[in-house]
């Protein structure tokens, strides 16, 4: 499945600071077509900043981000929006529009980006995605009526409605119970199989990383300390900080 020849994301020399807080320090990263790459790191290590720069929510101080070979810094807003349609972003807190029902949440990006859809086509797409995330009965519910796990699923369904080629998951299992975490991990894998996406999963949860990731990249103090398969990164780890990250997760 993994096509190491085809890079869909290429990040080089990325630097980002917030005042005196230097979050990313010369970061390089590649995402290959069809792979699930897990970016691991402690809270505040710059994981979310990395993917927010990728979709243009934040701007880097230095370095380049190329997605499908396109340098995001060189794009105007119209071109950036065109690129954004090829990237799905699942937010940590789901970011569902709380004044809209589940149906309206899913329709919202679709009707604004795809012209001339009939009511029947919109309903079909919404229902298909709710089936895919196993929540067909929530269609008329408000986000406030959903559990944390259901919100995550609806959030993922909303990003999938535009058929993205890259999925970015920001802490998909944060704040969920272990059973729901496994369900979300399975959903991430199902999304890749069904929609042929390449994904970056941001997490500090090693169980999630092991279940969903083809490769791991461990971000410590704004730099990648190790990149490779789970076994290579953790079980053969020589770096003290990477080792301690692994030990902490499993002793816990």
């Amino acid at each position: 499945m993994l096509n190491e020849q085809e890079k869909v994301v290429e990040i080089r020399g990325l630097i980002k600071s917030f005042g005196e807080n230097h979050v990313l320090r010369n970061v390089d990263l590649d995402l290959y077509k069809g792979e699930n790459l897990v970016v691991l790191g402690k809270s505040g290590s710059g994981k979310s900043v990395l993917i927010k720069i990728m979709v243009g929510l934040l701007k880097q101080d230095e370095g380049s981000v190329k997605i499908f070979g396109i340098d995001t810094l060189k794009l105007n807003l119209k071109e950036l929006n065109k690129l954004r349609l090829r990237i799905g972003f699942s937010f940590q807190a789901s970011a569902l529009y709380d004044s809209m029902t589940v149906r309206e949440n899913l329709e919202f990006p679709l009707v604004r980006n795809v012209k001339n859809l009939t009511r029947k086509e919109i309903d079909f797409k919404v229902e298909e995605l709710l089936e895919a995330v196993a929540l067909p009965n929530t269609i008329n519910q408000m986000p406030s009526e959903l559990s944390g796990g259901q919100k995550k699923r609806i959030g993922i369904a909303r990003t999938l409605i535009l058929n993205p080629e890259i999925m970015l998951y920001d802490e998909p299992t944060a704040g969920l119970d272990p059973v729901t975490c496994i369900e979300i991990n399975n959903l991430i894998n199902e999304v890749r199989e069904r929609y042929k996406t390449s994904s970056i999963v941001i997490t500090h949860d090693l169980t999630c990383a092991k279940q969903t990731g083809d490769r791991m990249a461990v971000l410590i103090k704004g730099q990648f300390k190790a990149v490779g398969t789970f076994e290579k990164v953790f079980e053969e780890a020589t770096d003290k900080q990477v080792k301690s990250f692994y030990d902490y997760n499993f002793i816990r």
Binding site: L57, R84, L85, F91, A95, F108, P109
Partner: peptide, 17 residues
């Protein structure tokens, strides 16, 4: 403000809205 805090505004931006 609440939409900003809960990243709903960011969610619109990444959906090209």
């Amino acid at each position: 403000g609440s939409m900003n805090v809960t990243e709903q505004i960011d969610a619109m931006e990444v959906s090209a809205i």
